[in-house]
Design a protein around this nucleic acid. Structure first.
Lengths: 125, 125
DNA sequence: CGGAATCCCTCCTGATACTG
DNA sequence: CAGTATCAGGAGGGATTCCG
């Protein structure tokens, strides 16, 4: 009960910053969101998160695993089988992320309209 | 009522992807979160979001403005005064973002611990 | 004050190929 | 299948300078 609001993401050197980037980053956010549907294998994730390369997916998953948000379980059979799943903390973050994403996609019509107007008025200049 | 779940962020070419990056990106997310406290001027934001350069802040704000999430109001006095504020959609997204960030910072103790263990076991290899 | 423009460099990113 | 290694490119991002 000593540590109240100890971590401020607005602070330059706050350790929460890199974690936030792992969670909200380009591929990290999508990987986290995809895993909310349940455990998944590597190539399964790769197919779900369209456009991601093996390299970036592996890299993002490692970051999330290091942050204690994702669990990686290896079965040393042949062919190799690796399953990724969410930790309790990871599940909560994924849910909040999907909530945000859901609202964003539902707002897309208005957003596309705004973009159109913005580009329009800039084209005149 | 025709368009149900039309925008899927997991799709490679979905127009929601770049918007998600604007919102959750390194500086965009912090700018959005900062503006949830109320309208702010440029250098005010610059101080709040520690570590951001003028260039990146201006760039992030422009992206958010283009997406219709942030409003930019100029007063052509001297010295120049520019105020940034959130649109209704921007406010909702900012709230969801702060919710996520709040949970993340509150989870930092456990996360730092996980990172420590991860690094530890990798050092042995 | 609030940017835009320029320079410059890092590191992110994506093919390709190879390993367990 | 699930990665790692390597390499080349292109964007991301900082410092500085200049304009309204």
């Amino acid at each position: 009960m000593a540590d109240e609001v100890e971590y401020d993401v607005f602070g330059a050197a706050c350790p929460s910053r890199p974690v936030l980037e792992d969670v909200t980053g380009r591929w990290g956010s999508l990987a986290l969101g995809a895993l909310a549907d349940g455990p998944m294998r590597f190539n399964e994730l790769r197919r779900r998160v369209e456009g991601v390369s093996q390299k970036m997916l592996a890299q993002s998953l490692q970051a999330l695993e290091r942050d204690g948000l994702v669990i990686r379980e290896v079965q040393s059979t042949f062919p190799l089988k690796v399953e990724y799943s969410l930790t309790p903390t990871g599940e909560v973050l994924a849910a909040k992320l999907l909530d945000l994403i859901g609202y964003l996609t539902s707002s897309m019509p208005g957003i596309l309209d705004a973009q159109h107007h913005y580009d329009q008025s800039r084209a005149e200049a």
